[in-house]
């Protein structure tokens, strides 16, 4: 302590600080492009969205300050509650399903006795790379009444034609199926990376102790994968709360508004009805919801081995 005080008095510490600043300046220079990108495309729009949530109007009609009116409108808007209901229903179905299926795929493809692993990995991962518009169009062809591939296959086994988009349940399941198909590859790759990192000796020791594959999965694989599962869960929460493109492309929010997600509600208000203020208020609430859920998950779930 005394040495440091003496060094400060003598100016040596000041010199060190300057060097440190110089050294940081170089670091900031390297960080500048990323920081600039962050400020322009993320922090800037985020702050603008929060500010706009206190204004009514849109880009065609102009804005005027309205305090908390947009939030009060949301509070009493039945449409908004309907979108929350659907988003939560979708969320509750998709998050466990996508994680369970991708984990199962990863465990299967991590087995040394499986042949053609790389082919399967590529095939399962491919939908994650394809644009959602392409995937949705493909699915629309497959679920088309009468001549759609799925109904034709069902007809072969004498199963009655399914009207995929005519009821809220079937329309929701269709969206879940498409999103599942798209998401499985992404999470599977992350799980595979986690599986590879589990020490082989643990399995050898378990085998010596007489543990079978199921026991090994529950007692070694799952506990060792906890940090990966936590990461995937958080990613799935963030991605799926923003469900939009599949709704836009496949159901258009129907039937009867039963598949309108929160992101759809934001889009409609912002770009169809010229109510960017209301859309910004909804976006702010969505941001708070995702942040809160993520914070709770980070608190509750273990993040290290």
């Amino acid at each position: 302590m005394n040495v440091l005080s003496a060094a400060r008095r003598s100016g040596k510490a000041h010199l060190g600080l300057r060097e440190a600043l110089l050294s940081n300046a170089v670091a900031y220079l390297f960080l500048a492009p990323a920081l600039l990108f962050f400020v322009v495309f993320q922090a800037g729009p985020l702050i603008t969205t929060i500010v706009l949530s206190f204004y009514e109007g849109g880009i065609l009609s102009g804005f005027s300050y309205s305090g908390f009116d947009n939030y009060l409108t949301l509070w009493s808007d039945r449409e908004f509650y309907q979108t929350i209901k659907f988003t939560l229903l979708y969320f509750v179905i998709i998050v466990p399903s996508v994680l369970a299926v991708s984990l199962a795929m990863a465990v299967l493809l991590n087995d040394k006795f499986i042949r053609g692993k790389n082919f399967f990995k590529a095939a399962i991962f491919f939908p994650s790379l394809a644009p959602m518009v392409t995937l949705s169009t493909l699915w629309l062809f497959m679920i088309f009444p009468n001549v759609g591939l799925i109904n034709m296959l069902l007809a072969v086994v004498n199963v009655r034609e399914v009207e995929w988009l005519s009821s809220p349940l079937m329309a929701t399941l269709t969206i879940v199926l498409v999103e599942l198909w798209r998401g499985v590859g992404f999470y599977m790759v992350i799980f595979l990376a986690g599986l590879v990192a589990i020490p082989e000796e643990l399995y050898e020791a378990a085998e010596l102790d007489g543990a079978g594959p199921i026991r090994q999965f529950w007692s070694i694989t799952l506990p060792q994968l906890r940090p990966t599962i936590t990461f995937c869960l958080i990613m799935a929460v963030i991605f799926n709360f923003q469900l939009f493109d599949a709704v836009y492309m496949i159901t258009g929010g129907g039937p009867g508004g039963s598949t309108e997600s929160i992101a759809w509600y934001i889009f409609s208000n912002a770009f169809k009805y010229d109510q960017l203020g209301l859309a910004s208020a909804t976006s702010t609430l969505l941001l708070l919801a995702v942040m809160s859920i993520t914070a709770v998950l980070l608190k509750v779930l273990p993040s290290d081995r």
Binding site: R78, E79, S166, S167, P168, G254, P255, G256, S268, Y273
Partner: peptide, 29 residues
């Protein structure tokens, strides 16, 4: 607000025609 009026109204009509809610409820909504 024509577009919003038509969207909000017809969403309820579609819900009634799809059997999700009764026509009376759709009309009220």
């Amino acid at each position: 607000k024509s577009n919003q009026i038509v969207d909000l109204w017809f969403k309820e009509v579609e819900a009634a025609l799809s059997g999700i809610i009764a026509p009376e409820e759709a009309a009220k909504n």
